[in-house]
């Protein structure tokens, strides 16, 4: 019995070792792709989907500059920008080399198989607690990333690539994040009650998830972005 356990342990150790090497390479490849971009200016449309927020699709511009400066701006009008959106760029995940990669096997995303890696920052002071990235083993593009932070909760990015896949830049990002329930202070509004308000659905109150869908139409890559836009 005992020898069996030892064999199993050794086997698993060996297995982990084999896969880990592989995943490290994959993460490195993904990172290399991301590293090609020094800065960019992207334009796109953001569709926000939050239960209490009824806002129109916004035309936005995203500015990025190495190492991890990112700014999301609405081209015109007022817009609610999800705070977690600063992690929109993958470089954020790899911003410093201080992380440990753990292989978490494979998963299926949209019909294709992806590799799952967990990145654990070495630095205890890092806001990021854990990132899980789903990498396409063929293209070494990050298809999905889930980041748990200390301050801003957990958010998730799902990427679809097109024209700018070379540079590791997605055409479309679905950004999911946690929001608290919105409650107006009592008595500040005298609202018109048209008699149609319904009792709240229980699932609405708890576990509110917000989503922002950003579709990029164009990137201007490595042409320089003035520092002023990040202020």
């Amino acid at each position: 019995m005992k020898w069996k356990m030892i064999v199993c342990f050794l086997l698993s150790l060996a297995g982990v070792r084999v896969v880990a090497q592989d995943i490290n390479q994959l993460v490195a490849a993904a990172r290399a792709r991301v590293e090609k971009v020094n800065d960019y200016e992207a334009s796109g449309r953001m569709k926000t989907n939050v239960a209490f927020l009824k806002v129109p699709v916004a035309n936005i511009k995203v500015y990025f500059k190495k190492p991890n400066r990112l700014k999301l701006k609405s081209e015109k009008g007022v817009s609610f920008v999800p705070k977690g959106a600063v992690s929109l760029n993958m470089s954020n995940l790899f911003s410093d080399n201080n992380y440990t990669v753990i292989d978490a096997g494979t998963d299926k995303l949209g019909g294709s198989t992806v590799r799952v890696a967990k990145l654990l920052p070495v630095d205890d002071n890092s806001d990021v607690v854990l990132s899980t990235v789903y990498i396409d083993p063929v293209t070494s593009l990050i298809r999905k990333a889930r980041t748990t932070t200390k301050e801003n909760g957990t958010f998730e990015l799902e990427m679809t690539y097109g024209k700018f896949a070379d540079m590791g830049l997605p055409d479309k990002v679905i950004f999911s994040f946690n929001t608290k329930d919105y409650k107006l202070p009592k008595g500040v509004t005298f609202d018109f009650d048209d008699g149609t308000s319904t009792a709240p659905k229980p699932q609405d109150v708890k576990n509110r998830k917000g989503r922002a869908e950003i579709t990029f139409s164009n990137y201007i890559i490595n042409k320089g972005v003035p520092d002023a836009v990040f202020k």
Binding site: F52, K54, G77, V78, Y182, L184, T189, D191, S197
Partner: peptide, 16 residues
């Protein structure tokens, strides 16, 4: 753009 803060029944909403 105009923001409307509104209480609708038990919910609060922000309309833009």
């Amino acid at each position: 753009d105009m923001l409307i803060f509104r209480v609708k029944g038990e919910e609060s909403q922000i309309l833009q």
